[in-house]
């Protein structure tokens, strides 16, 4: 894929946010908050960073691969997948409906291009990504494995089993990003189950940690991913702490757990879309 300008990428972010809002609104279910906060990440990854094979074949060889461990961000992932050519944009309208490939949480048995394992039950993605990364090493495939996890998701013990394994086995062809939005379903993470010093925790587990402090600034997100890439191949797994705002881009949704899993009603949708210019054409 040809590199695009920041301005062009910014437009894609705005369109992704529109897609997400319209998708969850249409079925009155789903999770708008985190995908709004991860729009810059998704777009930076898929339109700037990932070296994907142009044929979108699913054998996964010789290309960078991405895994979404926090599967409830599906609306955002489906949007960026379709906007980058994995499947028709028009299919977004089937999200969460009967007989759709766009399941509420990502699924493989409907064969949606770009998805390689089901997710939705939290805490399992990092382990899977480690296996993929190790398979690449066996095959002497020098491409990278990316994964996104939620910060609340880090409360699952399995994440730390995987963290320990990754450093022990020197899985240095993997970049794990944490959506550090400070929110989860029942409230702010520090009220629900305090994550305390995440950077120190991951470092203590033997990871190289980089912090992307401006996770909703496209340039910073790209710089962060570049920096993370520069740390690969050096014997350590790489963690990208991505500071984002849940609900970013819509003034009444930003910074609260209230929009983790609630769709906007008609009026709220209209108001939200009024703040997000249609750039690539709605699905």
């Amino acid at each position: 894929m040809e590199k695009q300008s920041i301005e062009q990428l910014q437009k894609i972010c705005t369109q992704l946010r529109r897609d997400v809002l319209r998708m969850v609104h249409a079925v009155q279910s789903g999770h708008p908050g985190a995908p709004l906060g991860c729009a810059e990440f998704f777009v930076a990854l898929y339109f700037d960073q990932l070296r994907h094979n142009p044929d979108f074949k699913m054998d996964g060889k010789g290309e960078d691969l991405f895994f979404l461990s926090n599967g409830h961000l599906s609306a955002g992932w489906y949007s960026v997948l379709s906007r980058s050519g994995y499947f028709p944009v028009s299919e977004l309208k089937t999200f969460r409906k009967l007989n759709s490939r766009l399941q509420g949480h990502p699924a493989t048995h409907e064969h949606l291009p770009g998805i390689r394992v089901a997710s939705g039950s939290l805490g399992q993605g990092l382990s899977v990504a480690l296996g993929v990364a190790q398979a690449k090493k066996i095959d002497k495939d020098d491409k990278l494995v990316y994964i996104l996890m939620g910060d609340g998701e880090l409360q699952e013990g399995q994440v730390w089993e995987a963290a320990m394994y990754a450093a022990h086995h020197k899985v240095d062809n993997l970049i794990a990003t944490v959506d550090y939005n400070g929110q989860q379903i029942d409230g702010p993470t520090d009220k629900i189950m305090d994550l305390k010093n995440l950077k120190a925790k991951w470092e203590a587990f033997g990871w190289e940690v980089i912090e992307t402090k401006e996770g909703n600034d496209l340039k910073s997100v790209i710089e962060g991913l570049e920096k993370a890439k520069a740390f690969t191949g050096k014997g350590k797994p790489v963690l990208n702490l991505l500071y984002t705002e849940m609900g970013y881009g819509v003034d009444f949704m930003v910074g609260t757990h209230k929009w983790h899993g609630s769709p906007p009603n008609d009026e709220q949708l209209a108001k939200a879309l009024g703040q997000l210019e249609e750039t690539l054409g709605d699905y």
């Binding site: 805490g123 699952e156 629900i192």
Partner: peptide, 30 residues
Amino acid sequence: CADLIGSLKMGDFQKEFPERFFQTGIAEAN
């Protein structure tokens, strides 16, 4: 409850008996 108090409708109990209710975060095994 593991970060689903609202979904499980356990909030009224938590409010009335905060000292007898434990939020575990997303950690079901624990």
